[in-house]
Write a protein that binds this DNA or RNA. Structure first.
Lengths: 335, 335
DNA sequence: TTCTGGAACGTTACCGCTAACATTGCGGCA
DNA sequence: TGCCGCAATGTTAGCGGTAACGTTCCAGAA
């Protein structure tokens, strides 16, 4: 039965019921070993009976720690990030932290806004899914002196911890794989054109140039990627470069959409056109034919981010570091 | 420049700089009209100069309102819920609320845990994506006396506000559509088997029984759905019921997976087998052939949930209500 | 001139919890 | 017997805001 105005059961209510002071109740619940066995049991019983729910806001205000971490991803609907999220979430939950998610819509301005918001909420750390931020966001983060993990891509100038993979090297690797498979008139199609896509494009160019091949077959758009867009981009490319024998799509959504377009056009994949995607989403080995892709260790990135973050939260010093989690080329029937 | 131990800039810091009391600063920032123009400008300037970030925890503790709402979805990676989330998020943000997301992994026990957690965080309301909850979760919610919106499906006994669609009617409608299109040996394949899938299955049975057709061609599994699983389930069904002429898949992922399997088997869709999905995800009108499906108004559900929630938060009384947002059958080339 | 009311700003107390520093009491040892 | 040390519990003082009620002051009505 609540006693105070708010109608909420507080430590004080439990304390009165048991006949001790509220700090003892607080200790019994947080540091059980510091309270005698019998008293602890009585307190736990009372808490249970009163349906006590701790007020984390009050706790955070008092202790300066909220036991929550903000995870900012570009997009909720993009399943690329859900794996990262899972890894982060699992690791942090074990350590007693709650993950609060926000999505930036691929906008660094929105990221800035969210950093501001979550700082106001008093989170203890940030996990970001990019290495590019506004100047103001950088200032906010550095003033707050909170642990920060930047994920997905790598940077030479990490704010704090950086866990990701070399997007450019991955783009280069898939380009080389296509060349090694005998393709010579290789196209690139990309959407959104965020930093990571630009890096993949640069890698693709590296590979082709290194072998003296033309990099002109490149179709890009700032629009967000989707299956439909994959088909549309492919159509445009087939029109402009009818001799194209392979396409590296900047992500699996586009690649799958391109595959569907080939099916509509009764274009044999890989016979007449080879397709490759990026990320290794589930769909890539479900389609017919299965799609060649670059498998990115998203789960692993999330888990590693959580691990390193916990170290920082537990006092490991701020020493900017970079962790390359690698990638893997999956050659499937589409090439 | 921060003054206190926490190193954080507070209202007091601004107040001292301007030479007023902190309550005046608080008012200037929250209720500008209650403070004189000149003073307000000086305060805003000082806040800016000091990089003031409000402490929402302290504010929430003091005022009893946190301006945050918990949104619990079954799965982050399932794009079905990302549309709902967008609708909720957009609507609530306008009203000044922050949405905190949690995912239950389709488990009502996990939902219970999250409700507990978010109550401890002091959220002002809940948006749930189911109408089924543990008894303890129900008790927690009713004791907390917070506005609650249950989404996605409809129930006769809403906790508070209920916004969704009649899953069973939708299952029935797609069943009837298949029958109307001339199919007679119609199968059902379902995964996960959560409440909504069970309802769709029941609707499918309704439709077939009403026309005297057999409902035996039903393949289900508790495993989570995926593209691969769609292919596997279809394979099993073709083995058991080689005469089947159409399949209603409980969601679009399974339907797409089944389509890919048909392509591998060189089975003509819809010539030899018709396929229908559920939800109307992007992929359904990108595949070749495009998939017949039931388009669910997920964005709308989210927006409506936000609207009704805001009314409740602004004082509208607790009067359990049910809002049917309908659905739409999209007949495409797969049938 | 005096009184009144409201705009503008201040004081006090408290939201629920925890850090830091008491205090108490008891067993063990010289 | 007296003292020490430690385990177990208590007291005090905030954390950073906001609600509620006070105070001040000045314009305008009586």
């Amino acid at each position: 039965m609540p006693r105070r105005s708010s109608g909420r059961v507080t430590l004080q209510d439990i304390a009165e019921r048991v006949g001790v002071s509220k700090i003892t109740v607080s200790r019994a619940l947080r540091e059980p070993h510091r309270v005698s066995e019998t008293l602890r049991l009585r307190i736990e019983e009372a808490a249970e009976a009163l349906d006590y729910i701790p007020n984390l806001q009050a706790g955070a205000l008092s202790s300066g720690r909220s036991l929550s971490v903000a995870l900012l991803v570009p997009s909720i609907s993009n399943s690329v990030f859900s794996e990262v999220q899972r890894g982060v979430d699992e690791g942090l939950r074990e350590a007693g932290y709650q993950v609060l998610m926000g999505h930036t819509g691929y906008s660094i301005l929105e990221e800035e806004r969210l950093i501001d918001t979550f700082l106001a909420y008093g989170v203890d750390a940030f996990v970001l899914s990019s290495t590019r931020h506004t100047d103001y966001a950088r200032r906010l983060l550095s003033r707050a002196r909170l642990p920060v993990v930047e994920t997905m891509e790598l940077t030479d100038t990490p704010l704090d911890v950086n866990v990701g993979l070399d997007q450019r090297a991955a783009g280069r690797a898939i380009g080389e794989a296509l060349i090694d498979a005998g393709y010579r008139r290789i196209g690139f199609c990309g959407a959104r054109l965020d930093y990571r896509v630009q890096q993949r494009l640069a890698g693709w160019e590296d590979a082709l140039k290194a072998r003296g091949l033309s990099t002109q077959r490149c179709q890009t758009t700032p629009r967000p990627s989707s299956y439909r867009l994959g088909g549309d981009l492919l159509s445009a490319m087939l029109e402009r470069w009818p001799d194209m024998d392979a396409v590296f799509c900047c992500n699996d959504d586009l690649a799958a959409g391109a595959l569907f377009e080939c099916q509509r056009r009764r274009l044999d994949v890989p016979g007449q056109l080879a397709l490759a995607g990026f990320n290794g989403l589930d769909i890539t080995d479900a389609t017919c034919p299965a799609l060649t892709t670059v498998i990115t260790p998203r789960r692993l990135i999330g888990e590693q981010a959580a691990r390193l973050l916990i170290e920082r939260l537990q006092g490991a010093p701020h020493v900017p570091s970079r962790h390359d989690m690698g990638f893997e080329i999956a050659l499937r029937h589409s090439t």
